[in-house]
Amino acid sequence: MKTHEPGTGQYGGTESGERAVAVSAEGLPGWLDPVFRAAQTVRPQQLSRFLPPESGAGRQSAVLVLFGEGARGPELLLMERAGSLRSHPGQPSFPGGSLDPEDGDQATTGPLRAALREAEEETGLDSRGVQIFGVLPRLYIPVSSFVVTPVLGWWRTPSPVGVVDPGETARVFTVPVADLTDPANRATAVHPSGHRGPAFLVESALVWGFTAGVIDRILHFAGWERPWDRAKQVPLDWRA
């Protein structure tokens, strides 16, 4: 199978005891082509104004941006973090977390392994059914000092998912891309600090912050975004 890193060259390889991972665009459904193409050229500054510190400081982590195909067409896998967690409690997010030493090199395959491992631990996902097809530039979450690599995956062979550890995850759910692009489900989230950012009101959840920002940029650069009312605001204590 042909494998390649976004841009050029190989992105794979194994070391003793490491999970074999690679980035491959072979066999992707046609509707994912715009996302794959965008991942080849998008720059960090086009995704977020929060970029990793030049000093290299920050907690290295990765998230799995997993696209599947459900009853209503293309969809994304999300989870709601447990309310007892110290970092981003109760917030909808992509599966993901910090890199462990066994994940390997943080500059190459480490984020891929971490994204798959964390998704397994948090949602019960069978990662053998996931095809990684792209990696977005590393971004920064100032409030928690996470340096996050978004890993793009195609759920080639779907598997059952659900809460594995209630201490980490409150629920696991999928969101149709059609709902994410629906202008009626879009708003601007207003943080008590005054910070504003994109938000999505979907599946009885308010998706905001880092996760909403990544989704917003993917929709934009994939050409899926529809005009929406950016003056529509929603406070972060919103409930469906």
Rank of each mutant, 00 (worst) to 15 (best):
V147T: 14
A222W: 00
D216K: 00
I215H: 02
L206P: 15
G167F: 05
V207P: 14
W155G: 13
F173A: 06
T211S: 13
P150A: 05
D165L: 14
T211W: 04
A205D: 09
I215P: 11
N185W: 10
N185R: 09
V147I: 12
P176F: 06
A205T: 07
A222F: 00
W155A: 13
V163R: 02
G209Q: 06
F221N: 07
H195R: 11
A184S: 14
T169Q: 07
A205H: 12
G209C: 09
P198A: 14
F210V: 07
A184R: 12
P183K: 02
R171S: 14
A189F: 12
V175A: 09
P160C: 05
H191K: 08
A170I: 06
A184D: 11
F221M: 04
R196N: 05
T174A: 09
V177S: 02
T174C: 11
T157K: 12
P192D: 08
T169P: 03
A170Y: 06
P198C: 12
G167Q: 08
T174G: 12
S145F: 13
P158Y: 01
R186K: 10
A212N: 03
P166D: 02
P183V: 02
L201V: 11
P227W: 07
P158Q: 00
V148K: 04
G162H: 02
E225W: 00
R196A: 11
F200W: 08
P150L: 01
P183T: 01
V177W: 02
A212K: 05
V190E: 04
V190H: 10
F210G: 08
P158K: 01
D179G: 12
G194W: 07
F173Y: 15
W154H: 14
R226D: 02
R196T: 13
G153D: 08
F200L: 02
P183S: 05
P227H: 04
R171K: 10
T174L: 09
E168V: 06
E225Y: 00
H220R: 08
V207R: 04
A205C: 13
V147K: 01
L219M: 08
I218N: 01
H220Y: 15
G209S: 15
P198H: 13
A184C: 10
